[in-house]
Nucleic acid binder design. Structure first.
Length: 585
RNA sequence: CGGGACGUGGCGCAGUCUGGUAGCGCACUCGGCUGGGGGCCGAGUGGUCGCCGGUUCGAAUCCGGCCGUCCCGACCA
């Protein structure tokens, strides 16, 4: 491609509002343009990089038996009503009516449509297993799009769906994806971690998220460097520091004026926070039968811990969970700042397992200005549910090996879910097994955000001058610059290299050298060739890797060979990153 | 949805407080010089100042409403 004819232009300054590095650089280098919040156009450079990523996705999906299909972006509402998601999902689902006033949905994901295909096509266990995938646009009306391509409203996703007759088959497909995803991210030179995760709106029994660790990430991860345990904070477990064994004493009400936080209470009583109980009030939306009801939830953790709202929501099987308002708390007979399960009515009481095993805790008396000392689970109050509902944090002990864990932030670039029968049952996706019994198909779903992946690669590979693409994702392999006196040789080289199948971006513009060098650095193709009177006098063409400082002088007639050698080396480097990864459950 | 900020040529911004006929840098066009890290000189093109309404002799500027964009939070895969 000749830059004199290329549609993309570089920008000296990034538009205001682009704060994240990848967003700024992709904008500045002419890869993307924003149309509206969370909506982007992909210019030629981005389109080329995306095509490369998509090909990697295809290769890895095909390698584990995937077959590519394509499903619509617009779906009839009926399908989404069948799985219940039409009602479960809020404004994030795009809805509209067609000209006949039929309700339609914009695809957020494609479980419903796959399910519809499966129930129409799959009848026998002989047709299983299957792995179908497509690369398609999704619409999620995110309440807050941000960070450019990292969180867009319209985005392209590779999603695959596995269909199996039994648990072993589903497990195999899940593990295949686990490895394939590492291969994909390694081939894109993007460091990632697989972490155990919450199943969220997808439903199902097991899920992993593939996280690119970066401070701009929106998720918090817990990592144990000693044994390799990794988990999203939403579900991360940890070993809770055990309480000192004591004989339970009799609860006693005492005056604690102004001690409406755990910190103040502990200081007032002269005890550690671990000797107190913390109450958290929430209202959960729970589906009972066919109805959604709101339940008041009183959660209790030990004073030295925080409530994990995801764990709490899962413990009560809530569809939604929000903090309670003061009047709701008072209505239940509790008192904000002085709350505990003792004496509250009409509350779903959830107690963290550590509270159950910690004797003689100071807890609220449900009366402003008063606490109870020496409360004991089982003596002073009971719970509807005892479960782990505590939030893991920096330094907490690993649930597996007990070593201190650390936290880091991450961007989710992919996820894998064992859906089981979450969709096949409501949609009636059944098959006849070898015994002639009708059984629901076991499904898995596996997603990778293509644009987000591109943005993460950009986020990882850049320097103060611009992007530094890995060879597998770069829009072009070679950036050829002609300077004064080098035009004729550059033209010849451009013809020769493209003739040999090398992807060359050729800066044939009448620009000053500084402009050309800066644009080359900004765009970030891996190899730069510079031809000018000065280089020719010294005996040839300058060859420089984007990521390195020094250039090498190559005689004109050896350039093609030299380029091919360099490209092969860059590819080998990437291939060496692709290794087998042990499955961490 | 809660909090905050911003909206002025393609991009980055000033002007708004204190109302008086819209400006700077970059980009773009033409001419000339220059020619290995965003160069210089000269001449130009381009803006209903987000939209609607109000106040006023007069509104980018003051007032009200709306829309849009970004950031923090809530939410979410």
């Amino acid at each position: 491609m000749r830059m004199s004819q290329m549609f993309s232009q570089t920008l000296r300054q990034a538009p205001a509002g682009a704060e994240v590095k990848s967003h700024r650089l992709l904008l500045r280098a002419g890869f993307i343009r924003q149309l509206a919040a969370g909506l982007f156009s992909y210019l030629p450079l981005a389109k080329r990089s995306l095509a490369k990523i998509e090909n990697i996705l295809r290769e890895e999906m095909n390698a584990i038996g995937g077959q590519e299909i394509s499903m619509p972006v617009v779906h009839p509402a009926e399908l989404w009503k069948e799985t219940g998601r039409w009602y479960e999902i809020g404004s994030e689902l795009g809805r509209f009516k067609d000209k006949n006033e039929r309700e339609m949905a914009l695809a957020m994901t494609h479980e419903e449509v796959i399910g519809d295909l499966v129930r129409k096509e799959i009848r026998s266990h002989r047709q299983l297993p299957q792995l179908l995938y497509h690369i398609q646009i999704k619409w999620r009306d995110d309440p807050r799009p941000r960070a450019g391509l990292i969180r867009a409203r319209e985005f392209t996703m590779k999603d695959s769906y596995s269909l199996d007759a039994d648990e072993e088959g589903l497990d195999r497909q899940y593990r295949n994806h686990y490895q394939a995803y590492f291969n994909i991210f390694n081939r894109c030179a993007l460091p990632t971690l697989a972490v155990r995760s919450d199943v969220g709106m997808m439903g199902g029994s097991m899920a992993h998220e593939f996280m690119y660790p970066t401070p701009i990430g929106e998720d918090t991860l817990l990592i144990c460097d000693a044994c390799g345990y990794t988990a999203n904070r939403q579900i991360a477990e940890f070993r809770k520091p055990p309480a000192e064994p004591e004989e339970p004493r009799k609860a006693e009400k005492i005056e604690t004026p102004g001690a409406d936080t755990i910190e103040k209470l502990a200081r007032f009583l002269g005890i550690p926070e671990s000797k107190t109980a913390k109450a958290f009030f929430a209202v959960a939306t729970i589906t009972e039968g066919t109805e959604d009801v709101e339940r008041f939830v009183l959660a209790v953790v030990r004073g030295d811990m925080e409530v994990n709202e995801t764990k709490l929501a899962n413990a009560v099987r809530a569809k939604e969970l929000r903090p309670a308002r003061e009047e709701e708390i008072r209505h239940a007979g509790a008192s904000p700042g002085y709350g505990s399960p003792v004496g509250v009515k009409d509350a779903l009481v959830v107690v963290d397992d550590a509270v159950k095993d910690s004797p003689n805790l100071a807890a609220g008396a449900n009366e402003d200005g008063y606490h109870l000392i020496n409360t004991n689970y089982g003596l002073d109050y009971e719970a509807d549910i005892v479960s782990d509902i505590a939030l893991a944090g920096e330094g907490d002990a690993c649930p597996r090996c007990g070593e201190a864990m650390r936290t880091t932030r991450g961007v989710e670039v992919g996820n894998i879910f064992k859906l089981g029968t979450r969709y096949s049952e409501p949609l009636g996706c059944t098959f006849l097994d070898a015994e002639g019994d009708s059984k629901p198909v076991l499904m898995g779903s596996y997603g990778i955000g293509v644009g987000r992946l591109l943005a993460c690669v950009a986020e990882e590979h850049n320097d103060e001058n611009g992007l530094v693409w890995p060879i597998t994702v770069a829009p072009y392999e070679v950036h050829l610059i002609s300077l004064g006196g080098g035009e004729a040789v550059a033209e010849d080289l451009y013809r020769e290299l493209t003739g040999r199948g090398v992807e060359v971006l050729y800066d044939d513009r009448d620009e000053r050298p500084g402009v050309k060098f800066n644009d080359a650095d900004l765009i970030g193709n891996p190899i730069r060739l510079t031809v000018g009177a000065r280089s020719l006098e010294r005996g040839g063409v300058e060859l420089k890797l984007r990521r390195e400082q020094e250039s090498e002088l190559v005689p004109v007639e050896e350039v093609a060979q030299s380029i091919e050698r360099r490209l092969a080396a860059l590819r080998t480097e990437i291939e060496e990153r692709v290794v087998e990864v042990p499955f961490e459950e």
